[in-house]
């Protein structure tokens, strides 16, 4: 991973996601407190923080897998409301990769990739399969297209999950701890795919503890704790010169060994 990678990745000024004074509760429990965040087109953001800090909940709010109770979230010009049409519209443009892959076990790799393009984008089957093959080649597993997810390794499954999201041609990709459930030797193959995606200018928000990945590709690292954004900064500044005590403590804990 080279540190020069950042220079080759351009960020434009168009805003893709705006989150404004957003709050979320689970019952009485205040999970997200006054979140303000703006993400530009092509920006790569890494969110880190201790377990239970609300980082997964935050990105799940962006495609409405979780509902927020106060404040606004605007994705690609559409404000998230209870309106199902709006939600579906946003979900079409926002891809998501989960910690546990969540591939559909009863469908082949190819069917996993073509289902949404065919039924949501109304793409003809042949075209959807061509697109799927293109992305499966990009994540380097075109030869597994006919297999079922249960026959693949964890790393391969996660790459299929990335390809599946890309088949919808999303404008934004959300990654929810994509390497946390993987064996160590498989983490790299998934990160490599994500780095390549970043180089191509995809707008990405990644919840991850892979600090090497954050240093290589992120424009901005966000530290969350107790449902709040504690600190955000460019990776070099963030790692070398953390401002908040909680950030320092967190970094010292994860970088200690």
């Amino acid at each position: 991973m080279s540190d020069t990678a950042q220079n080759t990745m351009k960020v434009s000024d168009d805003v893709m996601i705006t989150i404004n004074e957003m709050h979320k509760w689970y019952g009485d429990f205040h999970v997200l407190k006054n979140i303000n965040l703006s993400v530009n087109h092509g920006e790569r953001i890494v969110i880190c923080g201790p377990s239970g800090s609300g980082k997964s909940t935050l990105i799940r709010c962006i495609n409405r897998l979780e509902e927020h109770q106060r404040g606004d979230i605007v994705v690609d010009g559409t404000t998230l409301t209870n309106d199902l049409k709006n939600i579906e519209q946003i979900r079409r443009e926002v891809g998501m990769v989960f910690q546990h892959f969540n591939l559909f076990p009863h469908l082949t790799v190819m069917e996993n990739c073509t289902l949404a393009p065919i039924w949501v984008r109304k793409m003809p089957k042949a075209e959807a399969e061509a697109v799927a093959m293109k992305y499966l080649e990009r994540v380097k597993i075109p030869d597994q297209a006919g297999k079922y997810p249960g026959q693949l390794s964890g790393g391969q499954q996660q790459r299929v999950a990335i390809a599946r999201s890309l088949c919808m041609n999303p404008k934004i990709m959300l990654f929810d701890e994509p390497t946390s459930a993987l064996d160590p030797e498989m983490i790299k193959e998934v990160l490599d795919v994500m780095i390549e995606l970043a180089r191509e200018g995809m707008t990405m928000i990644c919840v991850t503890h892979e600090m090497g990945f954050a240093k290589t590709v992120a424009n901005r690292v966000i530290f969350m704790d107790g449902g709040e954004i504690i600190e955000q900064n460019a990776p070099a500044e963030f790692f070398d010169n953390p401002q908040n005590d909680r950030t320092k403590l967190f970094l010292s804990q994860i970088l200690a060994h």
Partner: peptide, 11 residues
């Protein structure tokens, strides 16, 4: 996760 993945794909 199955329903969430389906939701996230826009189904």
């Amino acid at each position: 996760g199955q329903g969430e993945a389906a939701d996230a794909l826009g189904l």
